[in-house]
Structures are given as structure tokens and as C-alpha cells.
């Protein structure tokens, strides 16, 4: 099981700030995870529609589309950061 965390408008569009999911065995990368997640609900699909506006951290380290997700405990999905 992996804990998915959502922040900012990704959280608002999906409608929850976190969910625990069992990843299918064929979901091995961040890109595959986003494709799979987008099929879970209209909210997920809307939040993830434009992948260029989505950033991901795997176990609290910034990731890229090809970062492996097998064995990850926590995956966060959020817009580009706007702090400072």
C-alpha cells in the first residue's frame, strides 16, 4: 500500500488530501501512476489533465516521470511550487 498526498489545487480538484491505495503491479513509474490515477474518478482526471502542471515527490524527494514507484511508501502530487 502507498499513501498518496495531494496539495493545493490538485487536492481541491481530487477532493481529498490523502488516500491509501494498492498499486497494480504494472504501475512502475510516476508517469504510469498518473495515468492510472487519472482513471479513478472525474476529479482525479480533471486534476491530472495537464501533466505539464503536475509535480510529484516520491518518499519526499522530487521525482520525474520515469522515477520508479515500486516500494514507495508516500507519493505526493502537487502543482509547481510557489513559495518564497
Amino acid at each position: 500500500m502507498v499513501e498518496l498526498l495531494y496539495f493545493a489545487w490538485v487536492r481541491e480538484q481530487i477532493g481529498v488530501d490523502a488516500e491509501t491505495v494498492a498499486l497494480p503491479a504494472n504501475i512502475t513509474s510516476v508517469a504510469a501512476l498518473l495515468d492510472w490515477l487519472a482513471s479513478r474518478s472525474p476529479g482525479h482526471a480533471a486534476a491530472l489533465a495537464n501533466r505539464s502542471r503536475i509535480r510529484v515527490a516520491v518518499d519526499q524527494a522530487f521525482a520525474t516521470p520515469d522515477t520508479p514507484v515500486a516500494g514507495a511508501r508516500e507519493i505526493a502530487i502537487f502543482p509547481p511550487v510557489t513559495g518564497g
Binding site: F62, V81, T82, G84
Partner: peptide
């Protein structure tokens, strides 16, 4: 430090106006 804080620290700003309108700041 400021340039990296703005682009590499996981913060998100949400703007709010008196009439209740809100908007997430774009990177």
C-alpha cells in the same frame, strides 16, 4: 537562497479577495 526557496521548497500560495474569490498563484 531566495531563488531556490521559490522553486525548490514545497509551498503553494493561494490568493483571497474580500468578495470570497480565491486563486492559486501560478509558478
Amino acid at each position: 537562497l531566495m531563488d531556490w526557496l521559490k522553486t525548490k521548497a514545497p509551498f503553494w500560495k493561494k490568493e483571497e479577495w474580500a468578495n470570497g474569490t480565491t486563486r492559486w498563484v501560478e509558478a
